[in-house]
Nucleic acid binder design. Structure first.
Lengths: 225, 225
DNA sequence: GCTGCACTGATTGTCAACAATCTGGAGCAA
DNA sequence: TTGCTCCAGATTGTTGACAATCAGTGCAGC
């Protein structure tokens, strides 16, 4: 849990509504494809429709909802084709992030990366089998690398848009197979490539890691609903 | 000019305002860093502040404006660091688009690509020296490849966000050196790689093309304002 | 029985007024 | 002069009412 703390006495109503909506969508409280009734949500959040509409416009920019004029907004449908698109984009962006991180990360940040990996490994060993956190730990790793790229646009794209969609997806497939151990192993290789400042290798490994994850997920989706 | 036609009797006021604002920002009618006064713009567009605020929220999602609560929105400042970020992201995304296009483009689309290149070459030869269109022709080429990727998310990211920022940048540096001929040559190599269905090479060439463009632009910016 | 059309209810889009917040300067004290 | 407080104007944030548009229903006509 690394979300922004919503001290109710901060920011504007639109922004708060935007956060709550994002949360509700990502956690599945609002189902995929569900219609977002302005009146309903406004009363539920205790605000008026004005700020709510602005929040919806913002979520539209994050690709979390789709809006059609005069017909309202709906939670995005994460079908297989869209997920395929998402993983390809992710492969490109995180590959680049990795390359840049290998060049720009400070030694301290790299140390942090390894600490993260160790903690992650302990969690896996401790709860061998039932690992709920895997996704969050995974996000932390990828997020740290994005930060390490020092590329603000890359960071915004990944953290602000793609990762939300990914979390949304994971909340729904969390019951499915994990492959945490091979993922951890790959993470380690990536971190080592970064530590050795080998941008080419770091990018290659990250891309392979992500396309591998997609192959695995896509296979699972064949046999499951 | 391939923008959406704004038949005034279509869509909603927010959307129309959004288009007009985008246009105004990209063409420089609204200067970088300029403050966007809601009252002023609303009267200028002949609408009320409600739809205008929604439009601004949307532009914020496209990274064309930055908003700070209670202080208003400003046109984004395209400083060198941001442009560097932009070109890196572009390199990653268009590289991937190229790889996917090499696999997914139909023969007809590939033919169109070469027709585009030929027309572009004629324009360069015809107006040797003063080539205003270069940017638009360039956009057409890159856009066609994005479409060829068949990846809707990639298309949206490129056409909806990055290209707007790029156009915004070009409107300001259009008076600077061009390097249209080497760019055309590189375009041709890319198209040929796609025609041969060589995704690896197509991606490599596109990435080299874009990072080369950045080196050139960044050099020019050293010596100019 | 089926098609087409008007009506109705609900939902979204828009507006103008009101409240909250920020910015800049006048006035005063150290 | 410098620094502070406080006020006023302007700007943004929010609201509730009003207008426009859409989806579903029932009826008339064929």
């Amino acid at each position: 849990m690394s979300a922004q703390l919503d001290l109710d006495e901060e920011r504007t109503l639109s922004d708060k509504a935007s956060s709550r909506l994002t949360q509700a969508i990502v956690t599945g409280e609002l189902a995929q494809g569900q219609k977002l009734s302005e009146a309903d949500l406004a009363t539920r959040f205790g605000i008026s429709r004005g700020p709510l509409r602005e929040a919806i416009r913002q979520l539209e920019g994050m690709r979390l909802v789709t809006r059609v004029p005069h017909a309202g907004a709906r939670v995005v449908m994460l079908d297989k084709s869209m997920l395929a698109d998402l993983y390809r984009v992710r492969e490109a962006l995180e590959g680049m992030a990795c390359r840049m991180a290998a060049q720009a990360m400070s030694q301290t940040e790299i140390d942090t990366l390894f600490i993260l990996l160790n903690r992650h490994e302990e969690e896996i060993n401790a709860a061998d089998g039932l690992i709920y956190f895997q996704s969050e730990g995974d996000f932390d790793f990828h997020f740290q690398i994005a930060l390490g790229s020092r590329n603000q646009m890359l960071i915004d794209l990944l953290a602000g848009e793609l990762y939300q969609l990914l979390r949304m997806c994971r909340y729904r497939t969390s019951h499915l197979a994990k492959r945490t151990r091979p993922a951890l192993q790959q993470h380690r290789q990536i971190a080592e490539a970064i530590a050795e400042r080998d941008g080419d290798l770091a990018e290659l490994l990250m891309r392979r890691h992500i396309s591998g994850a997609w192959k695995s997920i896509s296979q699972i989706m064949e046999t499951n609903p």
